[in-house]
């Protein structure tokens, strides 16, 4: 991790960190990198890949439509709505 990578991450996450926050993040990532190095040193060659702690697989459902919510209920907590749309600040690339 370095300042350039952090700036790239800020842009990707649409964040604007202050100088102090950037310093704190760089220190945090430096610690993380040390921990990663320690983990990488462990031989995991014969350890099976694990996605989840619990051995649960193939949680699927049938292709059936169930309408459980009305739009008005879902939009109750929205700061702004218009004609049934959620309304957000204009964002054009």
């Amino acid at each position: 991790m370095n300042e350039t990578v952090l700036k790239r991450l800020e842009k990707l996450n649409q964040l604007a960190l202050t100088e102090e926050e950037e310093k704190a993040f760089l220190a945090f990532y430096a610690e993380q990198e040390e921990e990663q190095k320690a983990l990488a040193a462990v031989n995991t060659e014969e350890v099976e890949r694990m996605v989840h702690v619990m051995p649960v697989y193939t949680v699927v459902r049938d292709d059936v439509v169930i309408k459980m919510f009305e739009r008005e209920d879902l939009q109750k907590g929205a700061p702004e709505t218009m004609d049934g749309y959620w309304q957000v600040p204009r964002l054009v690339e």
């Binding site: 702004e80 218009m82 004609d83 749309y85 309304q87 957000v88 600040p89 204009r90 964002l91 054009v92």
Partner: peptide, 14 residues
């Protein structure tokens, strides 16, 4: 997304 010029906002349909 529908960009609404009148309100200068973006309308979201999920």
């Amino acid at each position: 997304l529908v960009h609404d010029d009148w309100t200068d906002t973006t309308l979201v349909d999920f």
